[in-house]
Design a protein around this nucleic acid. Structure first.
Lengths: 205, 205
DNA sequence: AAAAAATATCCGAAATTTCGGACAAAAATC
DNA sequence: GATTTTTGTCCGAAATTTCGGATATTTTTT
């Protein structure tokens, strides 16, 4: 579970207070005091979320938001607005902020909101991982000549059978429904060595 | 994108008002006035989220929440609490509610919150779909004898090549790196007919 | 409608794969 | 440490697969 929260807040006191609140809730605050400082952490593979103040001396929370969206549209950005600044808050959501919080904000609301954002982030990253897994499988299964493709698959099947049988060739052969000798033939052809699949805990070559 | 919101609210006026707000935001409200009525919609494959009042004549929002969790722990439930009832709200989150809203609630906050819940739901369902996809592939790839497994795979490879070549056997054979006649041999063995892969738009048997 | 190209099937020789048996070496059991 | 089992390798005959050539049929082009 990702727990990182990249805090962007120029007011040192508030920043520290937020960080402390998060730590008490087992989150991992990363404190920065400006967009410039935070910039390099904002990447598409960042395993966490962003919490940024809106009004800051050199940049606004919207700058952070826009930048984050160029790096990864699915990176949640939570913005801290001034008290009762509803129009700004609405604009923030419209522009793609994950949520907003009114300053000063209740610690519980803060952590609840961030937790939701973190879960969102987790789900997105996990989804991407699954998708990539499927894509690469698809891709690598469909390259090369028929013989090559079949050989790759055969190798996988045999390796799997050997693994399941803990490296015992006879047993693997039986599970694959072929005579022991035939499996040896194929293993030689595929440059497979039974030893490698023996002893799940410790084996040296 | 799932857009269904199962509303559980005994106050008809408020319920209608919420439903209208949601419709204006392109969400799909499903109006119910009691837990009993909503109960059968709450299932692990429900493509939406739940929005329930906490105080109701016969049941509470917590009943809804607990029930939802037994059906699907990842089905977001948003609870409507009375004005400034912070303790109850906190308890709701602790017990697994996705979020809570204070009555009367701002329409924007309502839709924002529900949208987040819906995205969450979407991601969870998508994740499950991916996982299942991977599992079934794994399972069906590892059953039967070696010959059977290889034959299944060979069939897939050839079918794919034929599809890519729009049913032209010679072309498919070339892409697979084998002579045309050999491909015919294998197709006969696997009971494959080239015609089936011709004419991406319309073909009758 | 004729000509050209592609599809689909059959044949048979050459190449490859299968598989049982034999056997030495290694490992496990007694 | 002797015995039994298992492993890994080699051999050769039988079975299967490959693949080019021949050819009839269908489709496409001209």
């Amino acid at each position: 579970m990702t727990q990182k929260v990249l805090i962007i807040e120029d007011d040192a006191a508030l920043r520290a207070s937020i960080a402390q609140t998060l730590e008490l809730e087992d989150l991992e605050p990363i404190q920065t005091c400006s967009f410039t400082q935070a910039r390099r952490s904002i990447r598409s593979n960042f395993k966490g979320v962003v919490l940024s103040d809106i009004k800051m001396p050199d940049h606004t929370g919207f700058d952070v938001l826009r930048f984050a969206q160029t790096r990864d549209p699915d990176l949640p950005v939570v913005l801290l607005t001034g008290f009762s600044d509803v129009p700004t808050a609405m604009r923030a959501i419209k522009e793609g902020a994950y949520d907003y919080l009114e300053k000063p904000c209740d610690p519980d609301r803060l952590t609840d909101t961030l937790r939701r954002a973190l879960v969102h982030r987790d789900l997105v990253l996990q989804n991407r991982a699954y998708q990539q897994e499927l894509d690469t499988r698809q891709a690598e299964a469909q390259s090369g000549t028929l013989a090559e493709q079949l050989e790759r698959h055969e190798k996988q099947i045999i390796e799997n059978a050997l693994f399941e049988a803990n490296g015992k060739v006879s047993q693997a052969a039986e599970s694959l429904g072929i005579p022991r000798n035939t499996l040896y033939d194929r293993m030689t052809r595929l440059c497979l060595v039974a030893k490698s699949y023996r002893g799940a805990d410790q084996q040296e070559d």
